[in-house]
Design a binder for these strands. Structure first.
Length: 234
DNA sequence: ATGACGATTTACT
DNA sequence: GTAAATCGTCATA
């Protein structure tokens, strides 16, 4: 599915600009919002390029955040990558079957990260479909239904679709040939569509269960769940 | 050594 | 709406 190049003299498009360490060295709230609309890219061993535009992310803001794996300074083999440099991947396994992909951010050594929760698939859709379980064969909405929303509309789904697993834990997104984030130009969504709600799946975390630390693109069909079209705080 | 529990997804009543 | 799937991790002993 590589784009055909009309001729060698075709105007050269500027190479996509990759997010570097300095781009990740910021608070999780700020990074989560900034990552919406950017492109997550996965290059497989055979060179295949899979990508999607980030449409949903959550901030886990440090040792005082009860919902974080690093709450109260907890530091174990599993979450060790949260304590590494900004731009590292934190990939962990949960529920006996799902991987989750986070981007480490904040200051060096502080366990701060952004969970990537949903993508709008952009490149490599066929491969993603193969990496994911087949969608139910029963008829869906006959017309107008947005296709491919089953591929990356959740943190576990997108890891499956992009073949992101624990072998990519601690991968440096600033330099890795396998996993990185590109600045999408032009920005696919206006800032006015970015909204905030409480995080998903952290109901039992007291006040932190309600903290507005989840950002998503209002109305985007690939957002994982909850109201997708209503404005929350923002 | 043991047991409880997931930053979820899917199928089913 | 509710429940099962499924196993690594973590806290306790």
């Amino acid at each position: 599915m590589t784009a055909l190049r009309a001729s060698a003299a075709a105007p050269q498009t500027a190479p996509a600009e990759r997010f570097l360490t300095a781009d990740y060295a910021r608070p999780a709230q700020s990074l989560a919002r900034r990552l919406l609309g950017q492109r997550l890219v996965r290059i497989l061993d055979d060179g295949a390029r899979l990508s999607g535009i980030i449409v949903e992310a959550e901030a886990y803001i440090g040792v005082r955040d009860r919902a974080s794996h690093a709450f109260n300074g907890r530091r174990t083999a599993r979450n060790e990558s949260m304590y590494t440099a900004p731009g590292a991947a934190y990939v962990y396994f949960t529920y006996g079957m799902h991987e989750m992909f986070n981007v480490v951010c904040g200051r060096e050594g502080e366990p701060v990260a952004v969970l990537i929760r949903a993508l709008e698939p952009q490149e490599g859709l066929e491969i993603m479909s193969r990496l994911r379980p087949q969608p139910p064969a029963k008829p869906r909405a006959p017309t107008g239904a947005h296709p491919n929303t089953h591929l990356c509309s959740g943190p576990g789904k997108l890891c499956q679709a992009l073949a992101i697993d624990r072998s990519l834990d601690r991968e440096d997104l600033a330099t890795s040939p396998r996993l990185f984030i590109e600045r999408a130009r032009p920005r696919p969504f206006p800032a006015s569509l970015l909204v905030t709600t409480a995080r998903v799946g952290v109901e039992s975390c007291g006040d932190w269960a309600h903290a507005p630390l989840r950002w998503f693109v209002r109305g985007n069909p690939h957002v994982s769940r909850g109201p997708r079209g209503l404005t929350a705080r923002g």
